[in-house]
């Protein structure tokens, strides 16, 4: 296989505090994204999934301290100058956020904003007309009817789904090699979500854009991603092919998460809720971060943190007592 597009090694993000150990929100995160691959990071609030995604584009809050290595096509992102980062954003790596309203300037026309995003990285220095044509083509690509006309609309004239699609159009305007989508469908209705997922799938198939999808919704991962990374309390706790991880999970957290989601294709049995709450990153916790909530925790789980270790082909789990995949599925 070819060289990875994005390679993250031992990524750490922490926030220093006065007179206290700093708060670590991401620790020891390592993974690769191959060209054209769709990888999902799934986790709850505070799992560090968004911080991980944001550190790729250096969009972390100023007070954050970053450690580890993030290489994009072999180049170290944390070492880039501000100018190099600006060149990279939008052109090679772009991002779609959760809220399509605040991502647009409300007083500028949608088409002009997309046009500006193109012009910013345009080596060919297209003229106005060529730019307008390109914008219309992009809006058509993301499924907006009557694109030349709609390009003249203002953001408030678009529905939520249309704004999310327009935002996606802007993100892919320069055919980036990697698209980072942070909860792209969370604010959307389910029928619109389905369209946006199809759009992302088509983009990947037609232009070979690799996608890093950040979400709390397991079903969205199941729909779009071939590989899934499960994060909990700032750690990667399971990483593997979606088919395996979501049907025969090896980490108790992944298993519990799947058990706690009501399913539309099954009538109501009682849900298996995960007891307690995720740990507070400001309070140090020894051992596996999940052990206080884990039904199978042993003494050593509370003493020493396990490493992310391989458990089958391209599948890793951070657990002292990984579940037997088959048994878990049957349980």
């Amino acid at each position: 296989m070819s060289a990875p597009l994005l390679s993250i090694r031992e990524l750490g993000v922490s926030f220093p505090r006065k007179e206290a150990p700093s708060t670590t929100v991401v620790e020891g995160v390592s993974f690769d994204i191959m060209p054209g691959e769709i990888v999902g990071i799934v986790g709850e609030s505070g799992s560090g999934k968004s911080m991980t995604a944001r550190s790729v584009l250096r969009l972390l809050p100023k007070s954050a301290e970053l450690s580890g290595s993030i290489r994009f096509r072999g180049r170290e992102i944390p070492e880039m100058t501000d100018e190099e980062i600006r060149d990279m954003r939008g052109a090679l790596v772009s991002m779609v956020f959760q809220d399509p309203m605040t991502s647009f300037n409300p007083v500028l026309r949608i088409g002009d904003q997309i046009g500006e995003a193109i012009a910013l990285h345009d080596r060919a220095r297209r003229g106005r007309r060529a730019l307008r044509d390109r914008v219309a083509k992009l809006l058509a690509l993301v499924g907006i009817a009557d694109p030349a006309e709609r390009a003249r609309s203002y953001p408030h004239e678009f529905s939520g789904g249309m704004r999310q699609r327009a935002l996606t159009a802007m993100a892919v305007a320069n055919s980036p090699a990697l698209l980072i989508a942070d909860e792209p469908t969370t604010a959307l209705d389910v029928t619109v979500q389905d369209q946006v997922l199809s759009l992302l799938r088509e983009l990947n198939e037609n232009s070979g854009t690799a996608i890093l999808l950040i979400t709390h919704n397991i079903a969205v991962v199941a729909s779009l991603c071939r590989r899934v990374i499960v994060m909990y309390a700032g750690r990667v706790i399971e990483d593997g092919p979606t088919d395996e991880v979501l049907t025969a999970p090896r980490h108790p957290y992944t298993w519990s998460l799947l058990q706690s989601v009501p399913r539309i294709d099954q009538a109501g049995t009682r849900l298996t809720a995960i007891k307690g709450q995720p740990p507070d990153p400001a309070t140090p916790l020894a051992g596996c971060k999940f052990h206080p909530r884990c039904p199978w925790a042993e003494q050593r789980c509370g003493e020493q943190e396990p490493a992310l270790s391989p458990i089958g082909e391209a599948h890793g789990v951070r657990c002292w007592l990984p579940m037997n995949g088959i048994a878990a599925a049957a349980q």
């Binding site: 609030s45 505070g46 809220d99 309203m101 909860e183 507070d280 400001a282």
Partner: peptide
Amino acid sequence: LASPLPTRPAWVTRPLTVLAAVR
């Protein structure tokens, strides 16, 4: 606007707001 729901527990946001205030 149909904005994103606040899903972060307080301890996620508190360190950040405190830091912001300090700045």
